[in-house]
Amino acid sequence: MDILHDFGRYCKLLYQAIRSSTEIGTYYKNLFAEMIKTGYDSLPIVMLAGAFTGAVLTIQTAYQLVVSYIPLSTIGAIVVQSMVIELAAVISGLVLAGRVGARIATELGTMRVSEQIDAIESMGFNSVSFLVVPRVLASFFMFPVLYIAAATCGILGGLLAGIITGQVPMADFMKGGREYFFAWDIVFGLTKSIVFGFVITSVSCYKGYYATGGAEGVGKATTNAAVLSCIYVLLTDLLLAAILL
């Protein structure tokens, strides 16, 4: 029953957010601030995660493909495709579930338990439009940017790791990457990043918006937001792969 109750309230919050998304005057100031907090401020960690994932992927793939008749360009193809189709979106999604999701749930949860959300409502504002819409909308604009940054850094990281360790020459890496590069892969990756962004921010907004019980309640909301965001990222990843590939 609790799951149904939660799901019902989550859908209601989303419905309210969609209905109030036309109130641009209420949230446009917050939207820009949220885009900076969600996007710009998350760039370093996402780029770092992408670069290291790409580097490790190159080294491990080279280690596994020890057979002489498999050309070295295969490593480039594997790294580029893996980063574009899967790893850039999922790694950045998981990192952002912690970084962005926890921040949103803490912010809204603290506002809830300190009656700041009640204060917003009592002044005559639509609190959903003021707090939820800009956060979800910011993810729509910024998660694709973060995905592109993660994918680019992942590929560069993989390339550099190949060159520095001497396992894959630059020309082979580039050749493999180009040969198996399809534009659809990028569309797929971008779609995933948008869906992950929506899942992470909407779940975190929901957990924070309905937080109860003081500091302990905010802590619980934050933990739940981060954990659920990670689970939903993995579930939607599987679902999108099944539907779109």
Binding site: S114, E115, Q116, D118, A119, M123, G124
Partner: peptide
């Protein structure tokens, strides 16, 4: 919401936006 603008509300902890 229009009606609420005719109300002022001082909350217990003031509920200032931090």
């Amino acid at each position: 919401r229009i009606l609420r603008q005719r109300f002022g509300f001082l909350f217990q902890g003031a509920a200032l936006f931090d």
